[in-house]
Amino acid sequence: MKPAPFVHHAPRTVGEAAAVLAQVGHDGKVLAGGQSLVPILNMRLASPAHLVDINGVEGLDGIDVSDEAVRVGALARHAALARSEDAYAALPLLRQATLNVAHPAIRNRGTTVGSIAHADPAGEMPAVLALCDGVVEAVSARGRREIGWQDFFAGPLETTLQADELAVAVRFGRFPTGTRTAFRESARRHGDYALAGVGVMVTVADGVVTAARASFVSVTDVPSVLDLGPVLAGTEASSESWGAAVDSAAAAVRDHVQPESDIHATSDYRRMLVGELTRRVLVESVTAAEGDRR
């Protein structure tokens, strides 16, 4: 099908974009990569009267690494984030996860910020933002504000971003030295939305785990981080007790998630799957150098 008619706005600056959004309010939608929005328009699941196309806005495609965070601008495409060597060196998790987002042709156009603004429970990047204790930077004609991930995701496909606000960037927080990460998901075909997925960070000091957290794809309504410190901290990563600790972590994850059943998989299957994936990413994160495995 084809989209319903709309008025196309092509602002050149963030200020212009904010002004248009203020004017069109709830009748408007931001168009970034369009890889989620255009299917919705084509199927006429939505028919906003105005589209604010930000693809021509100057200065939004940056990927900047600081000591604290990797800041990704609203026009940085998934493919650019996956390719960025600086971002990979600072936070390997970003590439590990982004390579699981859709297929290359979708990643060439879709944006990381758009996928966070879309807040699909099956999206990888909302889960990664949560695991990295990330922040969304929003701009409107009323001013600028920062929204921590806990306050950002309000429900499936729902955020606390207001209709007149543009997310100009997100910041993924970097982990302490000695932290390794890994990300894995299971999909019917590589690149499809995952049946279940999990990302972990594990901080190890002198061979002993000091902190560990996990975050999930497709098995929770909104991004949700589980602290695995209580089951893993104090364990020597190469010792015999590591295996048992990993089993307890997988059990904790199975208890934590609330998967739903749909035509692709039952709730029980997803729960089993995410437990097994947790086991694998934990083992991978402490064995592979810097969890350097996709």
């Binding site: 196309h8 369009g34 890889q35 255009v38 299917p39 196309d53 693809n55 042709a105 156009r109």
Partner: peptide, 13 residues
């Protein structure tokens, strides 16, 4: 030069 879905882009973009 980069592959993209032409059904998910508007001509104006």
């Amino acid at each position: 030069g980069a592959p993209m879905r032409s059904c998910l882009m508007f001509a104006v973009s």
